[in-house]
Simulated assay, not measured.
Amino acid sequence: MKKLSVLGSTGSIGTQTLDVVSKHPEHFQIEGLAAGSNVELLLRQVHQFRPKKVSVATKELAEQVKTQVSPSTEIFYGNEGLVEVAAGTDADTVVTAVVGSTGLHSTLAAIEAGKHIGLANKETLVTAGHLVTEAIKRKGVNMLPIDSEHSAIFQCLNGERRDDLAGITLTASGGSFRDLTREQLQSVTVEDALKHPNWSMGAKITIDSATMVNKGLEVIEAHWLFGLPYEQIHVLLHPESIIHSFVEFRDTSIIAQLGNPDMRVPIQYALTYPERWDSPAKRLSLAEVGKLHFREMDMERFPCLRLAFECGKMGGTATTAFNAANEVAVGRFLNREISFLQIEDIIEEVLDRHANISNPQLADIEECDRNTRLLAAKL
């Protein structure tokens, strides 16, 4: 039986992870759950899976939860609580599904505690990829990708010689506004942006999909996960989201991973690798799909993807600044403080002012993140 802790248990990836667990109760045991402020859903999860440790966002929420769970369940809160659930249980694998850079400390703590990582928090590698990958090697643990695109690349590379690799291509749905012109984007609303055509995701990642920041973060994540230079990482617009990503080899052969858009498939594969189990996902019928479409990625139409590539190639704290500026800008857009196109304006202005540190330590990354957020909040 595999023992798990789930960080971000009430979010989109967290709930689907627990759905996978519930389909195979004889194989999984939940040791810890960490959530934010959705106490109602968290309590249902606690009563179903009976974790030993639980964490929520604040002390007040922790007191509220404590009165409604078994005395044997330990309750924590805040960043310390997140770290406790990540590193302080008997779990052998930690699924990191929290949103944003808040996942960095808990992921590092889990690695230091010898836990394997199921990675759905791409910001961890974006903000501190060199530190995370060094810790993974030093502790001898595995980091398996949960994002559908990176899971696809991971599956396509199974059994292949890395020397034979020519490049990888991450596919992108294009998000809510993939067919709109720059002029049409001037008047889009929050409600418009949250209507993703293919995937059911949280608000932040749905906005990131519309700006193509999400794909930019995935490009940086792929660089660290697979040890590839950015020149070997490509992005292709694929509206149907059937081909999740593909790999090209030096002999021009291409291997792709296909399936209906359902995050439970890559989640389950990360938890059961190298085995493949029956899945609740709908089987893909290419005859029903009929046609698949592809378009070259337009970096002028999606400038945030261009900025992500530039920051990735620059390295250092540039990727930290890119991520922090975006998190603040997206929050301001969701609060209706700025327009949709001002998200990219804020990111670009922050990066123009950024003084890059080429080989940052954790304290440098934290300071960069903090100062970037202060700047992005004022622009």
Rank of each mutant, 00 (worst) to 15 (best):
D92Y: 04
E349V: 06
L236Y: 08
N359R: 15
K66F: 09
S5L: 06
S106G: 06
V95E: 03
T171C: 13
V265A: 06
N121G: 08
E349H: 12
F177R: 09
G312A: 01
R306N: 12
V350K: 00
A109R: 01
I117E: 01
D251K: 05
I357Y: 01
S209H: 09
I267D: 02
G129S: 12
V289E: 14
I205G: 00
E310T: 09
H27S: 13
K59C: 13
D192Y: 09
E348L: 01
T58D: 12
L225D: 06
T124P: 14
F333M: 02
E160Q: 14
F49C: 09
V85N: 03
A376F: 07
T133S: 14
A287Q: 09
E221M: 12
M299D: 11
V20Q: 00
Y269I: 04
K115F: 09
R44G: 14
I220Y: 02
F340W: 02
A377E: 12
V94Y: 00
I343P: 02
A363D: 13
L43F: 11
I146V: 11
A172H: 05
K59L: 13
L125V: 05
M263T: 02
L41T: 11
E80H: 14
D352K: 13
T89H: 03
G140M: 05
V6K: 00
T189G: 12
T372R: 03
T211G: 07
Y273N: 13
Q68F: 06
K204Y: 00
K53M: 15
A34H: 02
T93S: 04
R162T: 06
E40I: 07
V219D: 04
H196A: 01
N158C: 14
V54D: 06
R301F: 09
I343Q: 02
H196C: 04
T93Q: 04
M314P: 01
L131C: 10
A281E: 04
N260F: 05
T96N: 07
N260S: 11
T107A: 06
S253P: 02
N359K: 10
A166E: 08
G227H: 11
V20I: 13
A324G: 02
E26N: 13
H24T: 15
I220T: 02
H150F: 10
P266C: 05
V126K: 04
A35L: 07
